[in-house]
Design a protein around this nucleic acid. Structure first.
Lengths: 201, 201
DNA sequence: TACTTTTGCCTAACGCTGTTAAATAAATTA
DNA sequence: TAATTTATTTAACAGCGTTAGGCAAAAGTA
C-alpha cells in the first residue's frame, strides 16, 4: 500500500504547483491578472480541480502570504545572527526588510495590501505573521538599557521603525521613480535616528 | 433655448450623482463591493447610462482621486495659513494630512493604493496630485536657512516626512488596533524629529 | 398638423470572474 | 468480473465591466 503515499506525494506536489503557478502569473502580469482559470491552465488542469486543494482563491492568497512571512522571518533571523550589537542588528534587519520587499514585491504587496486587495483579516490569524515582530522586538529590547521595558514601549519603537520603512516601500512600489540613492539615504537616516532615540532613552 | 442649459445642468447633476453614489457605496461596503450596476441602482438608472458620463469605471475612480487631492490640498492650505513659522506650519500640515486620511479613509485608499487596486499610472497625469507636494515643499524651503536649496534637497525632506506619515496611515487602515495615543505619539515624534533635522542643516 | 430626426434610456448580449453540481472516465476494491 | 471509489471534466450560476441594438418619447422641420 505504498501507492497511497505516492498519491499523497503527488497531491502535495500539485498543491505546490498551484502556489507556484499563482506566483508565476502574478510576477508576469500582476495581481489583477490572477484568476483560477489561469492557474488551472498553467498546471494543466481545469479550474474546479483547484478547489480540491484550496477552499477558494483567498485560501491561495493566504498560503502565499504565509510563505512570504516565512521567507521574511528567515531573512531577518539570518541577518540578525551576523551581527553582535543590537544597534547593528536592527540596522541590518531593517535593510533586509527593505531588500525582501524589493526582491519579492508581489509577496510584499500581498502581505501588506500595497496596490492590492489582500486578505488582511485572515492574516491576523496566521501565527507566522508574528515572526518579524518577534525578531525585531528582541533586538529592540536588547538595545534598550531599561531592565524591564513594558510591551507598549517596545511596540512603540517597533511601530516607529515599521511605519517609516513600510511607508518608504509602499511609495516605491506605488510610484517607481525615486532614485536608489535617495531611498537608501532616507532609509538609513531614519533607521539611524530611531536607533539613537532608543539608545538615548 | 434656455432648455439647453437646463438639460446641461441636469446632466452635470447626474455626473455628480454618479460620483456621490460611488463614494456612498464604498463608504458603506468598501471598494471591493463597488460595481457599475450598484451605482446605477443608487442613481435609479441602468448601468450603460453611466458610460455617457464616464468612459469606464477607472474614469470614475480617477475623478474621485482628483476630488481627494483637491480636498487634501485645500485642507493643507487652510491649515498652513493659520500659522506663521514654517516649523509650526509643517507640523500642523502633516497632522492635517493624517486627519484627512482618517476622515476620508476611502479616498485615501484610492489615492495611494492602500488595500486597493487604484489607478496609479493615471494619477501621475493629474495635475491636482501635485498640490500637496507644492504646499509642503514651500514650507520646507522656508524652514531651510539655505538660500537656494536644490530640488533634490527639498524632495528628500518631503520624502522623509511622507514616508513615515503614509506608513503610519497605511498600517492603521490595514490593521486597525493601534491606540490613538500611540499613533499621535509616533506621528508627532517623527514630525518633530524631521523638522529639527531640517532646522539643524 | 404630419414627418423626420434626435435624444434618453433600456434590454440583451459578450466575455470575463469565482464557484458549485452533475456527469463521465479511470482506477481500485471485492 | 462487478461494484465502488476516485479523478477529472463539462456545464452552469450569478456576478462583473462593457458594448450594440432597439424602442419610445421629445424636438425639430415642413
Amino acid at each position: 500500500m505504498a501507492s497511497k503515499e505516492r498519491i499523497q506525494r503527488l497531491k502535495e506536489e500539485t498543491r505546490i504547483n498551484i502556489l507556484d503557478a499563482a506566483l508565476h502569473i502574478v510576477k508576469e502580469e500582476g495581481w489583477q491578472a490572477l484568476s483560477m482559470r489561469k492557474i488551472a491552465d498553467v498546471i494543466e488542469y481545469t479550474a474546479p480541480i483547484i478547489y480540491e486543494y484550496f477552499a477558494n482563491k483567498e485560501a491561495i492568497l493566504l498560503e502565499l502570504t504565509r510563505k512570504g512571512y516565512l521567507i521574511l522571518t528567515r531573512d531577518l533571523q539570518e541577518v540578525r545572527a551576523k551581527h553582535e550589537s543590537p544597534a547593528k542588528q536592527l540596522e541590518a534587519m531593517w535593510l533586509a526588510y527593505w531588500d525582501f520587499a524589493m526582491e519579492n514585491k508581489e509577496l510584499y504587496q500581498l502581505m501588506f495590501g500595497v496596490e492590492m486587495n489582500c486578505c488582511c483579516d485572515m492574516v491576523a490569524t496566521l501565527e507566522e505573521s508574528e515572526g518579524p515582530y518577534n525578531e525585531f522586538s528582541q533586538a529592540i529590547i536588547e538595545l534598550m538599557h531599561i531592565k524591564n521595558p513594558t510591551k507598549d514601549m517596545v511596540c512603540l519603537k517597533y511601530y516607529t521603525f515599521w511605519s517609516v520603512v513600510h511607508g518608504l516601500i509602499s511609495i516605491n512600489i506605488l510610484r517607481r521613480g525615486y532614485s536608489d540613492e535617495m531611498n537608501q539615504q532616507v532609509l538609513k537616516d531614519a533607521i539611524g535616528t530611531i536607533i539613537k532615540s532608543i539608545e538615548r532613552a
